[in-house]
Amino acid sequence: MSDCSMDDRSKRAGDTGRNAEQSRKVAATCTSCNAVYAAEAWPDGKVRPIGRREGCRCGETDFKVIETAESDSMPPRPDNS
């Protein structure tokens, strides 16, 4: 077992001190060029692409969360047995 705590690993991984439980992982689209990114949606309304501190590749910094259908309206998965 490692002597490294979860807090230590988070700090080394670039955690800026924000609590990960405050955000939720989403898919988001750039409001300018419609590029799609994995992102974090924050309670204050900010949507930030993961791994792109400067925003979209086109230079835009405004993103919109892509809304998804409810899980119970999704078609069933095929049975691969």
Rank of each mutant, 00 (worst) to 15 (best):
N34W: 03
N34G: 00
N34A: 08
N34E: 00
N34I: 00
A35Q: 11
A35K: 05
A35D: 13
V36D: 03
V36M: 13
V36L: 09
V36Y: 04
V36C: 11
V36H: 05
V36G: 03
V36Q: 12
Y37G: 00
Y37A: 02
Y37S: 01
A38R: 07
A38K: 07
A38Y: 09
A38F: 09
A38P: 10
A38V: 11
A38C: 11
A39K: 00
A39S: 14
A39Y: 00
A39C: 03
A39Q: 01
A39N: 02
E40H: 15
E40F: 12
E40M: 08
E40Y: 13
A41K: 12
A41G: 06
A41R: 10
A41C: 11
A41V: 02
A41H: 11
A41L: 12
W42E: 00
W42T: 00
W42I: 00
W42Y: 14
P43G: 05
P43D: 06
P43I: 00
P43N: 08
P43R: 04
P43H: 01
P43C: 04
P43E: 08
P43L: 05
D44Y: 06
D44W: 05
D44T: 06
D44Q: 06
D44P: 04
D44L: 05
G45W: 00
K46F: 06
K46V: 08
K46Q: 14
K46L: 09
K46A: 15
K46M: 10
K46N: 13
K46E: 14
K46P: 01
V47G: 04
V47Y: 03
V47I: 13
V47W: 02
R48I: 12
R48W: 08
R48L: 12
R48G: 05
P49K: 00
P49M: 04
P49T: 03
P49L: 03
P49R: 01
P49S: 06
P49D: 05
P49G: 04
I50M: 08
I50K: 06
I50E: 13
I50G: 02
I50T: 11
I50S: 10
G51Y: 10
G51Q: 10
G51I: 07
G51K: 12
G51C: 09
G51A: 13
G51S: 11
G51M: 09
G51H: 11
R52T: 07
R52H: 15
R52S: 11
R52W: 12
R53Y: 07
R53K: 14
R53W: 09
R53Q: 07
E54I: 08
E54Y: 13
E54N: 15
E54Q: 15
E54F: 14
E54S: 15
G55E: 03
G55A: 07
G55C: 05
G55H: 04
G55R: 04
G55S: 07
C56I: 06
C56K: 05
C56G: 05
C56V: 06
C56H: 05
C56W: 01
R57F: 09
R57H: 12
C58D: 08
C58P: 05
C58Y: 10
C58S: 10
C58F: 08
C58W: 07
C58H: 09
C58I: 04
G59D: 08
G59R: 15
G59N: 14
G59K: 15
E60W: 05
E60P: 04
E60I: 03
T61L: 04
T61Y: 03
T61D: 07
T61C: 09
T61N: 08
T61H: 06
D62P: 01
D62N: 15
F63R: 02
F63M: 07
F63V: 06
K64W: 06
K64A: 15
K64V: 10
